[in-house]
Design a protein around this nucleic acid. Structure first.
Length: 271
DNA sequence: ATTCTTGTTGCATC
DNA sequence: AGATGCAACAAGAA
């Protein structure tokens, strides 16, 4: 589930602990979300540290503590951040719990454990945070860049290209489908076939979907309106909100893609 | 019981 | 080099 705006939403779930100190850390002994990290080291260093701030970029979050301590969390497919009252006992799939002094428990819960917890201490910025590409809504992301990227990936389907995190940080499966549906491009269109008008339209739509996602989902996890493809894409017999035609589904670019055959004909990208 | 999945990585292959 | 396809990770839902 967690793409760009959902990640931003989850980041804020730890806000009630901000400014407080970590009293105790509980780590799921069987957790594999730590990968190469040493959870014991992290436990030792973060305990008693003060949680100062947090940030999200793409699908990555960071939580900053004093003494130059960083926790990075990627939610994978099923990760979620929670805040629970202090005396509540852990539930299934809790991977990391920060018990804050005079307050709540901050929890990372992840059933499938495709998520990841990273840890860093030092001057400067952790490498895995520094290497995230400039945000889609920043100045560095522009139509020229986009066009050049499409040229470089000319043989790939546009769906696969939109999922490439190095150029579209934070875009996931549903956002990619939403973008293509709004702009009227077939997910299997080849990136190299996009003409100047289409590149401009794609650029505009990518940014629009990001903005809308932040506004609706990132803010308070509101349900998107039925005018988005989002609410229809998984429903059996789902119909295009604009043309009412039956939506099609197929694996494209390695992922289940959903599109409206009338709105998104192959070839529209040539303009 | 079986098949599906909103993410990412690594590997084999073309 | 670039693209594709698949398996792996693991659990729950349909």
């Amino acid at each position: 589930m967690p793409e760009l705006a959902e990640v931003e939403y989850f980041r804020k779930q730890w806000n009630p602990g901000m400014g407080k100190r970590v009293k105790e850390i509980i780590i799921n002994k069987k957790a594999r979300v730590f990968r190469g990290e040493k959870p014991e080291t992290m436990k030792k260093l973060i305990t008693h540290a003060r949680f100062n701030s947090s940030a999200a970029a793409a699908k990555q979050m960071v939580f900053l503590f004093n003494k130059n301590l960083w926790i990075g969390i990627h939610l994978g497919m099923t990760g979620r951040m929670e805040c629970r009252p202090k005396n509540q006992t852990p539930i299934k799939h809790d991977q990391l719990i920060l018990k804050m002094s005079s307050g709540p428990q901050l929890i990372f819960n992840d059933p499938r454990q495709f998520g990841r917890v990273q840890f860093f201490q030092g001057e400067g910025v952790p490498p895995w945070w520094a290497k995230i590409s400039p945000a889609i809504l920043s100045q560095e992301f522009n139509a020229k860049e986009l066009g050049e990227f499409l040229k470089r990936r000319k043989g790939s389907t546009i769906k696969a290209v939109l999922l490439m995190q190095e150029r579209f940080p934070g875009i996931g499966n549903w956002m990619a489908d939403e973008i293509l549906w709004r702009a009227g491009f077939h997910p299997a269109a080849r990136a190299g076939k996009f003409g100047p008008k289409s590149i401009q339209l794609l650029f505009k739509t990518v940014r629009e979907v990001c903005r809308d996602a932040f506004r609706v989902i990132g803010k308070d996890w509101s349900d998107p309106p039925d005018s988005w493809l989002f609410n229809h894409r998984w429903k059996k017999g789902g119909r295009c909100p604009k043309t009412k035609v039956l939506l099609e589904r197929k694996t494209i670019g390695g992922r289940t893609s959903c599109w409206s055959p009338t709105r998104q004909p192959l070839g529209a990208e040539r303009r």
